[in-house]
Design a protein around this nucleic acid. Structure first.
Lengths: 143, 143
DNA sequence: CGCCAGTCTTGAACCATTCAAGAAAAGGCG
DNA sequence: CGCCTTTTCTTGAATGGTTCAAGACTGGCG
């Protein structure tokens, strides 16, 4: 399990100052995969080390962590922003059209090959984002 | 070139009533690939047949057309909703991180095979959406 | 220990999108 | 052709995630 000191280490490694809100947010994103901002705010406030943190600070921290590459922001159509801690492994997402549940999927093709488009139109491509849309097992069973 | 009567035909084919705003919006989406709602509203109002149409009507029509499958809604992270008329051919998108430009790319794998995820976690997948992120030629040249 | 850029707090603004209620019009039928 | 029902459009306002702004605070370096 990852602990607070580990998060501090990660922050320092990314040249970010270590503050209570940041450690708490980083912990929340690790604890709640694919959580939206609201859930993260709640988690941070429920956390002992979190205490009272403005929603603003959470937004700022999320942005800072995202641009530092410590977390990744994902926002499927029709959904609010969500964040996840798995970065740098080129994995993709399964999204349920019915309940919005998100699951991780490893890249079907392998290392990083889905970066290759049939025709890149001169674009310099640095990432391929894949979202599989469908219905999750729970929602399938319910209908 | 596609004309107004053609659009009427498409609407009727989808069991949708034929109204001036609908024909105008459908025409605008065909004329402006990847346009956002604002651009569509402007185009519809500039169009002779469009006249004065409330932004509400445009939102309604776009939703009706989308659920009828006549157009497709795309919303890359950090961008407002955009619409395109190419449907049913499983093509994907190149998005410029810098200027937001969007280009179409045919599916790299072929007919519809990118629907296959490595592990579907029990999901019933009906669509695979692929977004290639990068920098467009113009923005590359500018930097 | 003290400074200062980088952070957090408070509070308000933004704006794409949606909701609501009533007027208008499409299309089927007599 | 004109009526009627249902869908659609208009007007106007609300919603809510996200961002902006100004000032207080503080982490980490010298």
């Amino acid at each position: 399990m990852t602990t607070a000191p580990d998060y501090e280490q990660m922050l320092r490694g990314a040249d970010l100052r270590v503050t209570r809100p940041r450690v708490a947010v980083l912990g929340a994103v690790h604890a709640l995969p694919h959580a939206d901002t609201d859930a993260i705010i709640s988690a941070v406030r429920a956390d002992d080390i979190g205490g009272d943190v403005s929603h603003q600070a959470v937004y700022d921290v999320l942005r800072a962590l995202t641009s530092a590459g410590l977390i990744r922001r994902i926002q499927p159509s029709g959904s609010v922003s969500r964040y996840e801690a798995r970065v740098g492994d080129n994995h993709h997402h399964l999204v349920c059209r019915s309940c919005g549940a998100i699951s991780d999927v490893d890249c079907a093709v392998g290392e990083m090959p889905c970066l290759t488009a049939a025709d890149d139109h001169g674009f310099v491509i640095d990432e391929a984002e894949v979202i599989y849309w469908g219905t999750c097992p729970d929602c399938s069973a319910r209908s």
